[in-house]
Nucleic acid binder design. Sequence first.
DNA 1: CTCTTGACGCAAT
DNA 2: CATTGCGCCAAGA
Length: 115
Amino acid sequence: MSQKINKDEFRALVFEVVKLIPRGRATSYGAIARAIGYSNYSRMIGSVLANSTELDIPAHRVVNNQGYLSGKNAFETPNKMQHLLESENILVINDKIKNWGTVFWDPTTELKIEE
DNA sequence: CTCTTGACGCAAT
DNA sequence: CATTGCGCCAAGA
């Protein structure tokens, strides 16, 4: 059940899920939020990642629910995120992931998170 | 304490 | 498919 959670604990959970995203796949903020039991914290996921771009987590594999690279501006350069995705064979057209339905990786469905 | 902002999401139109 | 509005919650001004 969702109670108050420490900022650091929340960040840890987010990182845990993001690190598990397979290469060549991507997921959404909302999906991660639900996976860790805080479905209403999708915006917080973004905040956490925005403040942690320097850590070694595949933050570029996290986009919004439509497949748009909403966080591209938080990278070193706006085109960095797209570049990273394309290097994993993920096509990005007009800031949106092509074949989003196929590339999308749902943490709750394809993975079991232990809390 | 109030108001604004933001890597969001979803239903309604 | 494009827009709008509203809910959500933390952080900073």
